[in-house]
Nucleic acid binder design. Structure first.
Lengths: 214, 214
DNA sequence: CGTGGTGTTGATTACTTTCAAGATGTGTGG
DNA sequence: CCACACATCTTGAAAGTAATCAACACCACG
């Protein structure tokens, strides 16, 4: 496990090209690199920046005192995270894999509220939709909803990359790794999905998956 | 069940006095009155306003096709709701009891984004914290967290009013009404709370309750 | 080609839901 | 003001779903 990110290094040319910057007015920031497992920010730290994923994937989570973890969101390439209601981070953010992030520090000289609001509202809607999944859906429905969401965010292709571990998926869906694994197996046995390898699946019956996720 | 709200009536003098308006610049709106169970807005309707509760209480929820309901938030006097990421409502909002609401229609002449952002971020943080409850806490912890939250929002007094039914509480916490009822009974039997009547409780052991909610 | 971490599968346990019945509370009309 | 009726809430027993505990399989890495 790494504790420090290697910041502001040059972006290797074989990596994906930059996405559209999240903000007008702000200067284009260099890409900070975080190896797998590296902390981007921690609960309790002072906030004051937004983060845009260039490549890789990020998990944002909270912990209970006894170690139970709830991942509130995954963020893929092109997505923005790091909103806080006050000046302190209430969550942890970590790179899941080797990840490049553009950090936009808040500047008093540029009013970003106009541009932040739609992003914050998008995050709010996402969180509220996830509440429905956690509050009222069973294990199969949760996994189906997760796969549908991941597929949509990757352009709606049949093949879906899952950059995160079963543990991460479980902590996102409020399930144990065993239950996640069993549901994957059931979906495979029913011919709904194929497991290409541990971190990528192919959706065979899109309709069935949509239906399961309601 | 009522389908129409009686709008723009005069606020009877025996009712609570107005809270601070949510927005500067916007003219102070009259209070719309909604009887118990009345719909404030529905999923699919065109959005374009914010709502501030003057008195009473509001539930915001989504439905699954088979009728399962998830209440994403309750809103009490002084609180603001109705944020949407696009121009359409993705949720339902209903008055729980007789409720007064101030409606602030968006005006192109006044830029409210500066004032909306902190409210949206507050809502985002609330939703993310609720995700932890639904994803990783058991029935007793959920109810304890709910009571602690309601107590804090009512000024931290020992006596807490619960304007909503057990059904509402269950649909907020992802539990059945029977489980909610059983947990209330257990907390009562352990001497943690007293049930003054169906809609109000007294917190006897605040520490125990805090501890249970983590 | 081991070796440790990650994932899968099986058996059992625990918790919550479901189904059912009864109790309590509220509102209405006599 | 009381009585009845309907809705809400509580309690109990049985069933179902996911968690836990345990063993094994599969990778990915050095």
């Amino acid at each position: 496990m790494y504790s420090q990110a290697t910041s502001k290094i040059a972006l290797p040319s074989h990596l994906p090209q930059p996405h559209l910057p999240a903000f007008d007015g702000a200067p284009l920031q260099p890409v900070s690199f975080f190896p797998a497992g590296a902390e981007i920010y921690a609960q309790g730290e002072k906030a004051g920046a937004l983060y845009q994923v260039e490549f890789g994937a990020v998990r944002v989570y909270r912990l209970l005192a006894d170690g139970r973890r709830q991942i509130s969101a995954f963020h893929l390439a092109g997505e923005t995270f790091g909103f806080e209601a006050d000046t302190t981070h209430h969550f942890f953010a970590e790179a899941i894999n080797a990840t490049g992030v553009r950090v936009f520090r808040f500047s008093s000289r540029i009013d970003m509220s106009r541009q932040l609001l739609p992003l914050a509202l998008k995050g709010l809607t996402r969180a509220q939709e996830h509440l429905l999944v956690l509050g009222r859906q069973n294990a199969v429905e949760r996994v189906a909803a997760f796969l549908v969401d991941m597929a949509e965010r990757q352009g709606g292709l049949r093949q879906v990359e899952l950059p995160m571990s079963r543990m991460d998926i479980g902590d996102y869906l409020g399930l144990t790794i065993e239950t996640v694994s069993r549901v994957f197996t059931r979906l495979k046995d029913r011919g709904v999905i194929r497991l290409l390898n541990l971190r990528s699946i192919e959706i065979i019956k899109q309709d069935a998956l949509n239906y399961m996720s309601e």
